[in-house]
Design a binder for these strands. Structure first.
Lengths: 159, 159
DNA sequence: CCCCAATCGCTGCGCGGCGCAGCAATCCCG
DNA sequence: CGGGATTGCTGCGCCGCGCAGCGATTGGGG
């Protein structure tokens, strides 16, 4: 059951995961400082560009974990900065479709691409199989985090 | 050079990484809400428990990316909540050593351990080699993020 | 031995992101 | 056609955060 070697592997992965995530938070903050934005804004742009298609304000709120009110303010900032555009949805006139502005977004992706090369060097040392293993783990970790988060939200708080 | 299959693997890993990181941020926030803390506080506790030994306020500031002033306030909150203890450093009386309070920290780790089981199930489907691949990737990604962050900080801002 | 620069942690101050509650507009369904 | 649900927006207050400055302490150079 508790193979000490496996336990050690788990422990180490846990540790590295925390450090990795902490580093990401710091890195995200550095990018935000560099661009004169807020970490939330950069995070939002990352999500907007990760998947295609315009998003509604509500979708952005759900993705970032803020309320619709704060999401409105977030889109306000991004729109004022020229990073996104608002457009009314003809199908449902209550909705507002938010689309990234490629020309402006390029300033952000330029920072990412700058590291992209270093990233590719890092990934280049992996075989196809290894990359798939990592990717699969990411996806499953994402699904698990998501499920646990929802479970956590629908549970009575201690205190 | 640009093997389309490799390019697709990179693309997919990039996408999953973003989603994974976004999910972590949301999950971290959910944990914070659940405990009545702030995401920063939870993040700090995660780092405090990831590595042993007391930390100075400055170390905490560096780890979390905030200023020493904000780190002081952070430690204030954690101390008021009973999660950490302050202790003067005899060797250097300017410093203050911050140590986690295990009994109180247990409330946080309890939340994590609750998912720990699901995590082990997830990890259990991997072979030892695969786990090492993932761990190694995490570590190298951490190192790269850290290096890129420092490079980003010591560079002139656009605008 | 003393003096001065550097470091550490703490504290007012103001900014601004955020949640909350309420709003009008719009859609959906009976 | 009417009532409830949904969407996005807006005051309001809270509070985390960076900034600048403070005293205390340390280490090093003259």
């Amino acid at each position: 059951m508790t193979d000490p070697r496996r336990a050690r592997l788990y422990e180490e992965l846990s540790r590295e995961s925390r450090r990795h995530l902490a580093a990401y938070v710091l890195f995200n903050q550095a990018v935000a400082d560099h661009l004169g934005l807020h970490p939330t804004d950069v995070q939002c742009l990352s999500l907007l560009t990760a998947e295609p298609g315009p998003f509604t304000v509500r979708q952005i709120a759900d993705m970032t974990g803020l309320t619709t009110g704060s999401a409105t303010r977030l889109v306000d900032r991004l729109e004022r900065g020229g990073y996104v555009m608002r457009a009314p949805d003809q199908e449902d006139r209550r909705r507002v479709l938010v689309s990234p502005v490629p020309a402006r977004i390029a300033r952000v992706t330029a920072v990412w691409d700058d590291l992209g090369q270093a990233w590719e060097e890092l990934l280049g040392e992996h075989t196809d199989d290894e990359l798939e293993v990592i990717t699969r783990h990411m996806r499953r970790a994402h699904d698990l985090s998501h499920a646990q988060m929802e479970r956590l939200r629908s549970r009575p708080k201690p205190d």
